[in-house]
Nucleic acid binder design. Structure first.
Lengths: 334, 334
DNA sequence: TTGTAGGCGTTATCAG
DNA sequence: CTGATAACGCCTACAA
């Protein structure tokens, strides 16, 4: 029922080879035949079949993206950047929701192979031996986004988490804060958990400020964990004047918990977030935070995939700069 | 270089037909040969080529989703639901960011056809004649999500916007409010703009409450527009005690603008949102809002696509119920 | 139970 | 400039 290149050829009284040439404007036909064929294509409403093309060209013009959490605002930004780059390179993106389940991730990597995607962007999770096993023999480019691998030679794009957390803490210190707590990701999270804690501690040490274990609550990255984490933190550290949150969501949780305890931000407590998501500008008070250029990062990651695809040589990893975005949730201490 | 069914066949000393049968467990082989083949598949690390399969089966196990705004939190929820359903049906989803550009939308519809997707979910934009033109001769299922078409026979899934806005307004009225304003989407937005305004007015009329044109500011759905809209509204309607916002983002804009004018919510002003996004629970004060079950809606939309695919008969549209979620941004008036 | 051969819609390589 | 024809990797009658 679908109309193919053959139908066009027949109706135009030419061979399918000629039609194909015209479609891909390879040299070898008269202006005259071209017009005839083009017209027939119009009349018939013919459209080339990408699948058939892919079978030969071995290019599907499709890349896959693996994200742990599709509706996280950080992920949406990554995806947006990736989609944008893909579009510029004439490709589409398949999104896969792994839910941080290793098993599901494996299945998806598998699936993407079978779907013959041209490349993969792997986001925000630790890249395991198992994963590597799947992608290594196929020569398709893979790029890590907001994560990195110490074991395998896979390029990544991210910000320097330790450094960024250091900057956030330093900012608070420069504003005159001395008693600073942290609500952070889990210590076992080797990508975004421990490194940010390290950055925090490092800054405190540099400025010869005390840090106690109970002043750091490693609990997670989302709102609810921010609420819970702050409650715990403030009980253990009542005279704290500022807190660095491991993500904007956590920071909002802190804001909310503080509000419910009648602690006024920023008057009595300063809060700094991490990510600079849209919610950071939308909160009251607006959130001071360390900005991670998520859209650009996503874009870059996809661009690296396409570069590897075209040049067929490994590319370098890319570290994006972070910066502090000042809004209203931090107050200078006199 | 890629290893194919042929390689497997050769190494296992069977024909490719047999390998194929085993791969698709069609009847017709011994336990014995099966084991042999399976083992060779293991050894060789063979994986079937989905593209080649698709060429024959005419099924790509891929659906396309068109969204106007990839990083909108509402869209992420839609996408999440769609991805979930797709996964359950053994399919993947390609996301296309149309930016509300008709032209880009056309190109994407085109592209999805060429990629031979099994179906399409079209989200939150008005579906035009031009769009219909592209998808009509191909028999691929299309479902509209959070939009609908009065001109073409395409199933949709959404909530009843007018009714939902009516409910939101009625809720405020029941809480004792009489002077109610609205920050809404544009009147020319026939899907989510005018209908919600209609619902608002209808509720006011039902309860014989006055409404003036200046008490409705039709401006848009995002945060910035909420900020701007509220400023305009409060100037025109200073003794207003409550506002219904056309979206949660707008509501947050209202909250923020009110905060900056030292208007305390909910003490001096009540605010009700629309959508029940994650930000609604994360704001301070937490937002009372009318809930739209976005994830389920996305899921349903995709399910309809798959149903049409399997049964090959048109399905019915689906209207989801909305409900008021009470939190802290509305106060009862004595 | 198994193998052979034709075809899915294109592109690419030859001759003509 | 143009047209057969062989791939691409797989599935599926039809034979054996």
């Amino acid at each position: 029922m679908t109309i193919t290149i053959k139908d066009v050829a027949k109706k135009a009284n030419v061979s399918i080879a000629t039609v194909s040439r015209i479609l891909n404007n390879k040299p070898g036909y008269t202006k005259e035949t071209e017009e005839k064929v083009l017209q027939v294509i119009q009349e018939l409403g013919y459209h080339p079949n990408g699948i058939a093309r892919g079978l030969i060209s071995k290019r599907t013009h499709t890349i896959g993206v693996l994200v742990p959490q599709i509706s996280s605002m950080l992920m949406s930004k990554f995806i947006q950047g990736i989609e944008q780059a893909a579009h510029e390179y004439g490709s589409s993106v398949i999104v896969c929701h792994t839910e941080s389940k290793g098993e599901k991730t494996q299945k998806y990597l598998q699936l993407l192979q079978e779907k013959q995607v041209d490349g993969i962007v792997f986001t925000s999770e630790v890249f395991t031996q198992d994963h590597y096993q799947i992608i290594k023999d196929t020569n398709k480019p893979v790029v890590l986004l907001s994560t990195e691998s110490y074991d395998f030679p896979i390029p990544h794009v991210k910000v320097n988490d330790r450094h960024a957390a250091y900057s956030a803490t330093e900012y608070l210190i420069e504003k005159g804060h001395r008693k600073i707590g942290m609500v952070s990701g889990s210590r076992s999270d080797i990508i975004a958990g421990q490194p940010r804690i390290d950055g925090f501690i490092m800054a405190m040490n540099t400025y010869q400020l005390p840090v106690k274990d109970e002043w750091i609550v490693p609990i997670g990255f989302n709102f609810e964990e921010g609420v819970k984490g702050f409650s715990q933190l403030i009980d253990q550290f009542p005279d704290m004047t500022a807190v660095v949150a491991a993500s904007d969501e956590v920071a909002l949780g802190v804001l909310s918990a503080a509000y419910n305890r009648n602690i006024s931000v920023p008057k009595q407590l300063s809060v700094i977030g991490y990510d600079n998501l849209r919610i950071a500008e939308m909160s009251t008070p607006a959130l001071t935070t360390v900005s991670q250029p998520a859209v650009e990062m996503g874009k870059k990651a996809a661009e690296l995939v396409f570069q590897m695809l075209e040049t067929n040589v490994p590319v370098k990893s890319y570290i994006f700069p972070h910066k502090i975005v000042e809004r209203q949730s931090v107050k200078a201490l006199s």
